[in-house]
Amino acid sequence: MKRSNVATGIICTLNITLFVYAAIAKLLDYYNFQFGLTESPFIAPFANVLAWAVPASELIIAALLVIPATRLAGLYASFVLMSLFTIYIAAMLLFGSDIPCSCGGVLEEMSWGTHILFNCFFVALSAWGIYLQRKRRRTPTNLPALA
């Protein structure tokens, strides 16, 4: 197995673990998660929808990452979702809101600064996975033969 395949597998496994863990933590403590969303000045109007949409999105992304044929889509989705989470946290910090994290589980124990670094790590990991997957798809052995 090529190194890039191993690296992509590790990247996907880390993302799957993160998303499944975070989604389950949110669903198991649904009411606290939903309440945390209602406390945010940015997303309070959408809290009821987001309380289901966020964990559902995380589980869908994890499923996309499991299936080799949809892995690239899963990596793109992971990149976008983690980027959005990071932008949200940065906005919270910039505007000085003292809102508790509603991530669920041990993730909500992180400081906002640590959370940004954690998220940036997963954004970079997803970007690297995208690069590796796209590079793998362009190799001569994967290209269709011309007639």
Rank of each mutant, 00 (worst) to 15 (best):
A91P: 06
I116V: 11
A23Q: 00
Q34F: 05
N5L: 11
G36A: 05
I116N: 03
L28Y: 06
F122D: 00
A91R: 10
F46M: 05
A145P: 03
F42E: 10
A53S: 01
T70P: 02
Y30H: 12
I60T: 10
L107K: 06
K135E: 14
P100H: 02
A127E: 05
I87W: 11
H115P: 07
R137C: 09
N5A: 15
V106R: 07
Y131S: 02
S57A: 12
A53L: 04
E108G: 03
F118M: 13
R134A: 09
H115D: 09
F33T: 10
F118I: 12
I87D: 07
V54T: 03
G129I: 01
V6K: 12
L117A: 13
V106I: 15
V6A: 13
D29H: 08
L117C: 12
W52C: 00
G9S: 08
G74A: 07
Y131F: 11
G113V: 09
S126P: 02
V6M: 14
M92S: 12
I116H: 04
A44K: 15
G129P: 00
P55V: 01
M82F: 14
D29K: 04
P68C: 09
I67Q: 11
L65C: 00
A23H: 00
A127Y: 10
S83Y: 06
S102Q: 12
I11D: 00
R3L: 14
A73Y: 13
S97T: 14
F122I: 06
L18A: 07
P144C: 10
P41V: 08
W112C: 07
A90Y: 12
G105F: 03
E39P: 01
R134H: 11
S57N: 03
C103L: 04
C12S: 13
S102I: 08
P55T: 02
P140L: 12
T141Q: 13
G9C: 07
W128I: 13
V80D: 03
L64I: 06
L93V: 13
I67V: 14
V123Y: 05
T114A: 14
A90L: 15
P140S: 11
E109M: 14
N15M: 11
F122M: 08
L143I: 07
G113K: 07
A69C: 08
F79D: 01
S83C: 08
Y21F: 10
V49C: 02
R71A: 04
R134N: 10
G113L: 07
A63H: 02
F85D: 03
P41Q: 05
I61W: 05
T114C: 07
A127H: 06
L146R: 11
G105Y: 02
A127Q: 07
I24R: 01
E58F: 03
Y21S: 02
D98S: 14
V66S: 04
P144A: 10
Y31D: 12
I10E: 10
C120D: 12
F79H: 06
R137A: 14
